[in-house]
Structure formats: C-alpha cells, structure tokens
C-alpha cells in the first residue's frame, strides 16, 4: 500500500467518489464528486473503476508528496500543478502521469474552473461508510474522518490489484513521465457567464409572468454563500404569486429552488434529499459537471431545453467519455482494460 502525504492543505480538498444515492431515503445527501465527469475521467485514465475515490480540490490546491511510485491523472479545473522537490516541472492534465517515489506536486490557484480531481492508481482507500468513501462534511462522515484534508494528513492508496488491470510498470528511474496524447476534457467555463440548460420545474408557473421571463433572460450572480450543498444566486428577486407553504418533497442535484426571499438556490451534490421550497427549474444532468466548475463571482444563465435533448446530451457525454478511454487504451504509455464493468447505479 502506498501513501500520499499532504504537505500543505489547500482551501477545501475532500475525498470523493460517486456518493450514496441509495441512502437518500434516510435523509442522507447523495454527495460524491461535484463534477462527476472529471472524477470518472481521472479514474479511467489510471485504470480505476469510476467508483474509486479521488481528491476534489477547490479553487486553491494542495501540495502533496507521493511516498511510493504511482500513476496519477489530474482532470477538471486548471490548477497548474508543478513539481516542487526537483526542477519545477509542469504536470500535464487529462493524461496518465507516472510519478516516482518522493515526488512532490503543488497544485496552485485555479486558473480556470473551480474544482480539480486527482486520481491515483488503486484509488484512495479510506474506509467505506454506507457504501461510499465520499466526504460528507455536514454530517462529518466518510472520507478522512469526515473532514477536509489538513497539512500532515497521510492518505492511504488502495492495492493496485484491486484497482483493475490499468497500470503499466512504473518507471523507477524517471522522476515523472507521461505520454504525448491526452483525452478531451470537460469544456471549462470560457468566461464569467455560463449558460446551463434546464428543464422547467413543477412550480415555475407559480412565479409572476414577469419573473418567469426574467428567469429566462437575466443572469444570476453566484454569491459567496455557495458550496457543495448549493449555490445561492443573486439578482432582482423573483416573485412567487403563490406563497402558500408546501410540505417537504424530494429534490435532486440540479434542482433550482425559490425560497420566499426570491433568490434562487441551485442544489448541488451535498444538498438534502428533500426540501420545502418551490422548484422552478432543474439543470440537466449533462450540464451538472459544468455547473460544478463555475465559481462565486461568476454568472449563470438558464436556457430551457427538452427532456429528449437532455437525455441525448447526457448519452453523448457518456459516449465521449467512453471514446476517450478507448483511445487511451490504444495509445502507448498506459494500458487500460478492454471495457471496465460498470458500478451499480451508474452508466452501462
């Protein structure tokens, strides 16, 4: 078993996987990686199953030391990772990278995007709680003692044999090495205005006609009160014509709720399974990875789409991921198993 040591902790780095969907009925949020596309891509690049645990860094990354030789992959937001115990080498993203024992890598401030994912071959092997290794900070469970990483933490890495047949021989004599090819990553936000496609929520018609138009046409600031549970958005308050109380009902990641103060909340990975606010829209699954890469201070716009398009966009995204991984398997430098079995509850 190998170890990754945290030399200096970043702003908010947690261990994440695909979460605990089956425990929503107990009041437990699904949780897991905010950007599931980049999480899965990182895992696939090192030969892990999509369910293996990765590190999710937020806005400003950690400095890590790899105590044993291993294979890593970095995806998602651009954190300009560099080596710090040797000549400052840039570590490329979206490809597998061999690192030798003792390599230190510093992840810097995000240049683009909000969250980056680090996968190591074998996955981070903290204990599973309710079928998942993901950190749920609100309930202080999962991950490493239910909390974000601290300087000095030592993260256990799983047995390579249990990780699947992805890893090639690690080159002991080279500090870091990587192939020339890379896979197509998630398209990160290009500017400060990000459009997310939505399906209408059940209560959207409870807004005034004018507010319904504004929801479609205006942009919404992502406020600093935004985290893994949800993003509080700011704009001229939207007006609900029906302000009667409602009983709590199910919600989902991507649900846009409208509390009585008229400021929408976009629910994200750690949101509670149920809520008592009106649901005015739902961000489609294919756009949730992008939603995970916007940051406070940027703006969201909502563009209505159809159920059919939502499904076809999601399938296209899955196909791109599969294609990227198939390509990776054909390229020299790393060997990826023919077709990895799917985890329960995920895509075929």
């Amino acid at each position: 078993m190998s170890i990754v040591r945290v030399i200096r902790a970043g702003l908010l780095t947690t261990i994440q996987d695909l979460g605990r969907p089956g425990f929503r009925q107990f009041g437990v949020p699904t949780g897991g990686a905010m950007d599931r596309f980049s999480h899965e891509l990182a895992n696939r690049l090192v030969g892990n199953l999509p369910t293996a645990a990765t590190l999710e860094m937020t806005l400003s990354g950690d400095e890590l030391e790899f105590l044993g030789p291993t294979l890593i992959a970095i995806t998602g937001g651009e954190f300009s990772p560099i080596t710090t115990n040797m000549e400052q080498l840039s570590i490329p993203q979206n490809k597998p990278v061999h690192v030798s024992a003792g390599t230190r890598i510093r992840f810097q401030t995000a240049q683009r995007g909000c969250r980056c994912y680090l996968a190591v071959a074998g996955g981070f092997s903290v204990p599973e709680i309710m079928g998942s290794r993901s950190t749920l900070s609100s309930a202080q469970l999962g991950g490493l003692q239910g909390r974000a990483l601290k300087s000095g933490d030592e993260l256990p890495v799983g047995d390579l044999k249990s990780a699947g047949p992805g890893l090639v021989a690690v080159k002991e004599h080279v500090a870091i090495s990587f192939p020339a090819w890379f896979v197509r990553p998630l398209a990160l936000p290009a500017g400060d205005m990000v459009t997310l496609r939505v399906l209408p929520g059940e209560h959207s018609s409870m807004m005034s006609a004018e507010s319904q138009l504004r929801f479609r046409d205006e942009s919404f600031l992502i406020t600093s009160q935004s985290d893994r549970m949800g993003y509080r958005l700011a704009a001229t308050p939207l007006i609900l014509e029906n302000t009667s109380d409602m009983l709590s009902e199910g919600t989902a990641m991507g649900t846009v709720q409208l509390p009585p103060d008229g400021r929408p909340i976009l629910l994200m990975a750690d949101s509670a399974p149920t809520g008592g606010y009106r649901r005015i829209a739902h961000v489609i699954s294919a756009d949730l990875p992008l939603a995970a890469q916007v940051r406070p201070g940027q703006f969201l716009r909502f563009l209505e789409t159809t159920m059919e398009e939502a499904r076809s966009l999601f399938q296209k995204q899955r196909a791109n991921l599969d294609h990227a991984i198939t390509m990776a398997g054909l390229m020299p430098g790393v060997r990826v198993s023919e077709r990895l079995p799917e985890p329960t509850g995920s895509a075929p």
Partner: peptide
C-alpha cells in the same frame, strides 16, 4: 431505481439516465 425517497404526500424516485428514460 438509484433512490426511492418517501415524503409526506409524495415519493421521489431517482433513476440512471443512461439506463432509462422518464
């Protein structure tokens, strides 16, 4: 389904989009 969530007067059921449609 990936999750079945009962509430007061409703049940919310979550499914995997690549496995089934609405």
């Amino acid at each position: 389904f990936t999750a079945v969530v009962p509430a007061y007067t409703s049940i919310t059921v979550h499914f995997c989009l690549s496995r089934m449609s609405f």
